[in-house]
Design a protein around this nucleic acid. Structure first.
Lengths: 208, 208
DNA sequence: TATTCTACCAACCAGCCGGTATGCAGGCAA
DNA sequence: TTGCCTGCATACCGGCTGGTTGGTAGAATA
């Protein structure tokens, strides 16, 4: 009788509950921004109540911080950092990652943009706690791109006089800019066009 | 007696009142986003009341639209489009505009980023009215960059095989990306670093 | 089996926020 | 002067939103 009523609810699994809250909060933030996220919407999505949320997180801000640390940062690493790890063709791997994002699994990339950059743009001037966490994520990302460029340099794929630190920073900026422009246009084609420019830049670094 | 009380208030000047509301609303949106803008704050800044605001604008959305049309778009044109108009050295003018934005008059550029892009990132997926207006502003901007590039091409400053349309799109994306990254870091130095990458890209277009 | 603690629910609350209703002073036409 | 319309001010409201409080069922502990 009880099992027939609601199989999903009754079981006591705090870690999973916390994770469900985090993921629902992430989606709400992704779509509406942190200020636009409504806790009631998160609870409706998880079919939980205020009590559950405030048992796992002291307030909305802490929930936001946790979303950065435990959802956005790991996702970013899996999507952008991991593919560059120890690639034999670092420059090619970089280009490939850029091209892949056009037809990336989540089709929301064009509609809603980059979760990391969205939150950074919204919250960096308003909340130092957010800013530090998001800037840290950018730093991780930057270092992986820089490492790939330096490896490409060692392999003679790009010129020796390139400042890999500086270029990595610009590549990050350009990628976020491309995604942002595509989002503003709500157009996947715009992202393709934009990315071609970025790839053209990377090609211009090649040694010949 | 009446003149001594409050010289600024009493005079009946609807156009100026409307303009004051627009500028205060712009600053609020610039700092907190459209969703984060509170009408009460706008009214506090202008020392007006609800009656005045709702006399000039039917609702919050319409106020936001008016800010785009009457503040953000003209400002963008003055800052980015105008300097490229009929420049004898279009490529040099482009580089100069980019370099100037590092030490631009409003020091809030690093703190709060680009008003146009901020709003585009926040509202494009949520409100088609905003999206169209902001996309239109981007189109104006794009066309002016494209025209400058094509002029540079005619003058033999950049290679003939460059796709100026595509490059202009990428340049826009890169500029917004640079500003965004600097905002995320809250660092003027980051903007300088980032801009050097963009200028390096523009140099790579040169014919030799 | 009695006790305790964890995980969560249900109900409520205060403050804010967009929006409205109403009133009224001053310019302007007649 | 009279009346009218524009340009605001004042006061108010309903609903939403983050946050709180008291309780309780079930697992863990003893």
């Amino acid at each position: 009788m009880e099992q027939a009523e609601n199989t999903a609810r009754a079981q006591r699994n705090p870690d999973q509950t916390r994770q469900r809250i985090l993921e629902a909060a992430f989606m709400e933030i992704y779509r509406n921004g942190f200020q636009g996220m409504r806790l009631d919407e998160v609870l409706a999505a998880t079919r939980l109540t205020k009590g559950a949320l405030y048992h796992h997180f002291p307030n909305k801000q802490a929930l936001g911080y946790a979303v950065v640390d435990e959802v956005i940062l790991p996702t970013m690493q899996a999507m952008w950092v991991q593919p560059l790890r120890g690639a034999e063709e670092p420059l090619g791997a970089l280009v490939e990652v850029i091209e892949q994002m056009v037809d990336s699994k989540p089709p929301e990339m064009i509609q809603y943009g980059c979760p990391l950059n969205n939150l950074a743009q919204e919250m960096s001037p308003l909340d130092e706690g957010f800013r530090q966490r998001l800037d840290y994520a950018f730093a991780i990302w930057h270092d992986s791109v820089q490492a790939a460029l330096e490896q490409a340099q060692r392999l003679g794929q790009i010129r020796k006089d390139c400042n890999c630190d500086e270029i990595a920073t610009f590549v990050l900026a350009a990628m976020e800019g491309c995604i942002g422009l595509a989002k503003a246009a709500q157009s996947r084609e715009r992202l393709r066009t934009c990315n071609r420019g970025l790839i053209q830049f990377l090609q211009s670094l090649k040694a010949h």
